[in-house]
Design a protein around this nucleic acid. Sequence first.
DNA 1: TCTGGGGTCCTAGGACCC
DNA 2: TCTGGGGTCCTAGGACCC
Length: 420
Amino acid sequence: MTHGIVDVANFYVSAERLFDPSLRGVPVIVLSNNDGCAVARSEEAKALHVRMGEPVFKIRDRIKRHGIQLRSSNYELYADLNRRFNAVIAEHTDTVEIYSIDESFYRAPTLHNGLGDVEAAHRLREDILRQVGLPTRIGLGPTRTLSKVANALAKATEKVWGGVVDLHDTELRRRLFEQWPIGEVWGIGSALEARLHPLGIRTTADLAAMPPAVARDVGTVVLERLVRELGGIECADFKVEPDALKATAVTRQFGEPVKTLDELGEAMARRAARAAEKIRAQGLVASRLIAFAHGSRYRPNPPSASRSARLSPPTNDPRVILRIVGQMTEAIFQPGGVYTKCGVLLEDLTPQGQGQADLFATVDPRAPALLAAMDGLNSRFGRNTITLAVQGHGAKAFDTKRSQKSPAWTTRISEIPVAR
DNA sequence: TCTGGGGTCCTAGGACCC
DNA sequence: TCTGGGGTCCTAGGACCC
């Protein structure tokens, strides 16, 4: 068995460069929501030591001195490009598993008869570059974990090996693992790294040599599986069909801090309405609702509170959800508090019309038609064409800032590029 | 002044049951 | 002094990922 993983190099930056040639060859960073942190960096920006997740205000001088270009996140664009490069992968294999916005697993052999896995991977990279314009790297291995490690090694060795690394060969694994720190391995975060170091486990070779029972003892069954996978034994499922969504969240920092119950109520209602919209789009209903609001953790004694409730019967009706969120907001709000973020989570999601009916609840028989009409209008004429009154209307100071956003080049007819 | 958002999985421990 | 045993279910919290 061969597992492959394709990842797009510096995806958000590569996406921005696709439609804005002035960004090519210069340092670029793409910012998180609210234009707060660097979440993607071009190679030139990495060379200037801009770190992942670094707050923008801390690197203002470097941005100015080196002319680093900034862009707000443009998720419509990234989601559309994700669809496009996965369509190319699907031309090569019928086993694509979309893993994240910029990575997809697949299984070899691909549909190229007679080509070796490595040769076919090079062909796939070329096709994605030619058809979509995005640079990628591919890792191959007998397990998903090994393909992820191979992918990381493909980044590090791109100049030598051309962006494809295959870790089937145990001798090659042995050699490379000696040099590869465990913190770089998929599944080893800072906490596990800190527990493993005192045990003398520092390289991937050390990790792969751990007896599985010891791994389980030090960590959990997750670490045990990771160690087995490093040894070439498959423990993870491959899923062409994505699992149904189990929970969803809409949480945002405010553009400007919020100090009144009215504003917090509107901000909370907007997030709740968006969360309900998201699960309706998937035909799901929620059984559990959580709302929270808090101040800045970088300030002394920030306000912070949350409330949760069961939804019975499970629902995706914004009228029901917003009413409960409104009550929760009143319970959460502390007068005098300065709030910087709030959010709504919907959990225990199940397919609509499948759950047990609630004996004592009355369900509005007209709701499906009403909600379908709402969603139809908002999808046709743009988000928030029609909303519930408690969401307020128009742009507000507390809305998320995206001051450097590029146009929706590929998904909105009014914003497509013009060629002269 | 300014510090992202959205997921999944696992475990420990409490509540409850017979 | 001595105070059962074995389950299930739920939740909070931690860890990880991109």
